[in-house]
C-alpha cells in the first residue's frame, strides 16, 4: 500500500514535472542507512534477506527501495564484521536467516544514540542554480524563485494528500513520519525561497547604479516578474 514515495521523489529528478522533491540531494549516506537499518530490523528477531527487504520498505514507505542483492551483500559485510551470524540451517527454500551478535546489538544502540551528520557538503542543484542566477546577467531571478516555489508547493500538496490518507496503525505511523520528514524539508525549501526573494528584491532596490544599461536591465527584471 505504500509504494508511491519513490514516484514522488523521483518525479522531479527525471524532469517529468509534478514534483519538487527530486532535486533534493539526500545528504546522508544511503549505504550507511541500509547497514544500520538492517541491523535495527534484526533487533526484532532473526530474519532472512527477502523478509528484511520487505520490512525495510514497509518502514520507510519505499522511499529508498532496496534490491535483494544489496540486502545480501550488506548482510555478507555485516557477517564479516562480526555484527550478525547465520541463524541455524537454510529453510525449505534455501534461505538463510541471520541474527544479531552482541557486537551488532551494541552497534544498533550506538546508531540510535547518535545524531545523523551530513557526509560532506551535498551538491544542492537548486542552491547552485540560484547562485548562478544572481550572478548571470539577464536571468529573471524572481521568476526562477517563483517557478521553484510552485513546484515545491505541488510536491508539498502531494505529500500532504498522502499524509491525510494515513491511518493510525503502527505501519501508517512509520510511513506518516517519513512523509513528515519530506514535508518539513519541502517547507524549509519554500521558506528559503521566500528568503531569497526578499533578499533579491532588496538588493535590486539598494544596488548603486553600476551603469545605465545594467541598471535598466536589473529594474526590468524585477518589474517583469512582479506582473
Amino acid at each position: 500500500m505504500i509504494r508511491m514515495l519513490l514516484w514522488i521523489v523521483g518525479g522531479g529528478r527525471h524532469g517529468t514535472g509534478g514534483s519538487c522533491l527530486g532535486h533534493t540531494a539526500y545528504a546522508y549516506s544511503v549505504s550507511m542507512s541500509i547497514r544500520h537499518g538492517l541491523l535495527a530490523l534484526l533487533q526484532r528477531g532473526p530474519s532472512h534477506g527477502y523478509q528484511l527487504r520487505a520490512e525495510f520498505d514497509a518502514a520507510t514507505g519505499a522511499t529508498w527501495p532496496l534490491n535483494v542483492g544489496q540486502v545480501y551483500s550488506t548482510l555478507d559485510r555485516l557477517e564479516r564484521d562480526g555484527l550478525v551470524v547465520q541463524d541455524g540451517t537454510p529453510d525449505a527454500d534455501g534461505r538463510i536467516a541471520y541474527r544479531l551478535t552482541d557486537a551488532g546489538r551494541t552497534e544498533v544502540s550506538g546508531w540510535f544514540g547518535s545524531p545523523v551528520s551530513p557526509k560532506g557538503a551535498p551538491r544542492d542543484e537548486l542552491a547552485i542554480k540560484l547562485a548562478l542566477a544572481v550572478t548571470t546577467p539577464g536571468v529573471d531571478v524572481l521568476a526562477v524563485v517563483q517557478t521553484q516555489r510552485t513546484a515545491t508547493m505541488t510536491g508539498l500538496q502531494q505529500l500532504t494528500r498522502l499524509k491525510a490518507r494515513a491511518g493510525d496503525g503502527a505501519e501508517d505511523l512509520a510511513w506518516s513520519l517519513v512523509l513528515d520528514s519530506l514535508v518539513f524539508r519541502a517547507e524549509a525549501e519554500s521558506r528559503w525561497l521566500d528568503h531569497c526573494e526578499a533578499r533579491v528584491a532588496r538588493a535590486a532596490t539598494r544596488r548603486p547604479a553600476p551603469g545605465p544599461a545594467a541598471e535598466a536591465a536589473g529594474a526590468a527584471t524585477v518589474e517583469r516578474s512582479r506582473r
Partner: peptide, 27 residues
C-alpha cells in the same frame, strides 16, 4: 494554492491528483 505578490496573482499550484492515483502511479 494561489500566490499573491503586490496585489497580483503571479502563479498557482494544483489541483493535485487524488491520493489514490498517486498510489497507483507508484505501484
Amino acid at each position: 494554492v494561489v500566490f499573491l505578490r503586490d496585489g497580483v496573482i503571479v502563479d498557482q499550484s494544483g489541483p493535485v491528483a487524488p491520493a489514490e492515483s498517486l498510489l497507483a502511479a507508484g505501484g
